[in-house]
Amino acid sequence: MQNRETDEICSTLTEIRTLMNRSSRFLNLSPYAPIVSGLLALAAAWGVNRLYNGGWDIAPMLQLNTHARIQALIGMAAALVLLCVAATVGLSFAEARRNGSKIAIDAAARRLLWNFFLPLLVGGVFSIALFVGGHYGLTSSVMLLFYGMALVSASAHTFSSVRFLGYAELALGLADSFCQGYALVFWAVGFGAFNLLFGILFLATRNRS
């Protein structure tokens, strides 16, 4: 009798906890989204290196000596962002179908979008300003730092493990700001390798539970 009662209270408490989580966090984020984004970023870094550098230097300095090349690079970066966002949105819909829930732009989703894209947008515009002004050296660290901030601020509204990816990007961005000439390497590690690694870990832990 006593046991049945406590079991019932326990199950109520568990239900309440999931309800609180589900109502305040967006949980249809797909682990394949960071994997795909990471692969796209690695491919982009490889492509840019081939186009503007050619060799396999350990410290690839991009030959950004013409106006057209700078514009092309900004264009490619914008296309990459759009591709990653499209992939994430598409994969989230698939994830929602898998979870048997519908994607609704509810309060939790809106908060996630706002808290992620506000820092990202500010950082993006700032990087373009740096780039156009000719301060190439700091662009990659600014991108990494703002991406890290966006992840940390978004992590309160989705899986909390996202914040660890944010911390990693912030540390890498700070390290990058002290090193000169390794911009593309840092960029590829942060946006490519880190996203990829996070996605794989995310996938592994999700399948275990």
């Binding site: 239900e15 309440i16 309800l19 609180m20 109502s23 305040s24 309060a107």
Partner: peptide, 24 residues
Amino acid sequence: KVRLGIMAVLTVNESLDFKSLRTL
């Protein structure tokens, strides 16, 4: 249980409208 559920989601959200509460 229903009222406990309503309180639970309202403590973690600033405010919720009728429709969101109903679906949740």
